[in-house]
């Protein structure tokens, strides 16, 4: 397996974040995840892959590999990259069915992030989750 974000599991993410009791450690962890997320080549950041946030931009691409969806995503903001890594921990290299069955709201709630990092804060995370689920749905139906 290559060094993709799927290297961390959602369970690990939840446990790690639960372990920290102050915002600084949580954010340092999220930022580290952001730094580890493989960068998309600039030429790859096409307009049609853009997921618009209010204050930052994010891109999402995907391909199918043996019945699983491999995602590639990036953002110009580091914290958003970290949040993307959190999302990809749940979604990357899963089957369309697994993606659709995954309870993302519960995941966010368990991350206890909603308090600090609300998906409505214009960071485009909701839109990215939506796009991932749409992709999974279109493949699940095919």
């Amino acid at each position: 397996m290559n060094a993709s974000s799927a290297a961390v599991s959602p369970q690990e993410v939840v446990e790690t974040l639960a372990f920290f009791d102050d915002w600084e450690d949580r954010y340092r962890y999220i930022i580290d995840l952001g730094r580890e997320l493989p960068a998309m080549p600039e030429a790859h950041k096409r307009e049609d892959l853009l997921v618009r946030g209010c204050q930052s931009q994010a891109w999402l691409d995907w391909r199918e590999e043996g019945g699983r969806i491999v995602f590639e995503a990036d953002s110009d903001a580091l914290i958003v990259r970290g949040l993307i890594a959190l999302i990809l921990a749940a979604y990357d290299r899963r089957t369309p069915r697994e993606i659709l069955d995954f309870d993302i709201d519960d995941y966010f709630a368990r991350l206890d992030l909603l308090r600090h990092i609300s998906p409505t804060r214009g960071n485009g995370l909701r839109a990215m989750v939506q796009r991932i689920r749409d992709i999974a749905r279109s493949l699940a139906m095919a």
Binding site: W23, Y27, Q55, S56, D76, A77, L78, I79, V80, N123
Partner: peptide, 13 residues
């Protein structure tokens, strides 16, 4: 080297 949104988020915290 710092995205304005990252700065804004860390100030908000």
């Amino acid at each position: 080297g710092a995205h304005p949104q990252d700065v804004g988020t860390l100030l908000d915290q």
